[in-house]
Amino acid sequence: MRRTGQPTAALRHGGARTAAALASLAAVVALTGCSLAYEEDICSNGEYPVLSVGGTGSACVSDGEKPPTGYTRYPQGKVPQQVDDKWDVYWRTHTLDKDGKVIAAPATG
């Protein structure tokens, strides 16, 4: 006759396996969580980002060089640094006109 309140041997070992599986899962989550924090720079070292005039296109230009025709520097304080940062997202729906005024970006379609 089995005593109530006492787990069987199989249940005790299953609990140990479950605990080991949960510990492994926690380790995977911890390691993956670190890699999700990676932020990709808009440009490489030695470059700066520029915005296409009248559009949402962008490019990277070597430090010391002027932006190519049709591109301009971002306004000071509004330069995207990493992909999906505040200014990268902002400039997806805004642009600069030929006079340097911030305007809504043209609709794409």
Rank of each mutant, 00 (worst) to 15 (best):
E40A: 15
Y71R: 00
D88L: 03
D63I: 09
V61A: 02
V61F: 04
D85M: 03
V79I: 12
V53F: 04
E47G: 04
C43Y: 03
G46W: 06
P68E: 14
T72Y: 01
G57C: 03
P49W: 01
C43K: 05
P67S: 06
N45A: 13
G77V: 09
T56F: 04
T72W: 01
D63Q: 13
Q82F: 11
Q82D: 09
Y38L: 09
P67A: 07
D41R: 15
V50E: 04
V61N: 07
R73S: 15
V61R: 01
G70R: 09
Y74K: 04
C43A: 05
G77N: 12
G64E: 01
C43M: 06
T69L: 08
Y38H: 14
T72A: 15
V89R: 07
Y74I: 03
P75L: 12
V53W: 03
V79E: 15
K78Y: 10
G55W: 03
D41Q: 13
D63H: 08
D63M: 12
E65Q: 15
R73W: 03
C43G: 04
Q82T: 13
Y48R: 06
P80V: 05
P68F: 06
V61S: 00
Y48L: 08
K66A: 14
G55S: 11
E40D: 14
E40C: 09
I42M: 15
Y48C: 06
N45G: 12
P49R: 08
A59R: 14
Y38F: 05
Y48S: 10
E40M: 14
G70A: 08
I42W: 07
Q76D: 13
K86G: 00
S52F: 03
Q81L: 14
T72V: 10
D88Q: 06
T56I: 13
E65C: 13
Y90V: 07
G70Q: 09
D88W: 15
D85T: 01
V83F: 14
P75R: 06
Y71T: 04
G77M: 11
P75M: 08
Q82V: 11
A37S: 12
A59C: 05
Y38K: 11
V50M: 08
V61P: 01
P68T: 02
T69A: 15
Q76Y: 07
G70E: 08
A59W: 05
A59F: 03
Y71I: 04
A37L: 13
P80C: 09
Q76L: 02
P68L: 03
C60D: 08
S58A: 00
Y90C: 09
P67N: 10
I42L: 11
Y74M: 02
P68A: 13
V61W: 01
C43H: 01
K66L: 11
Y74F: 15
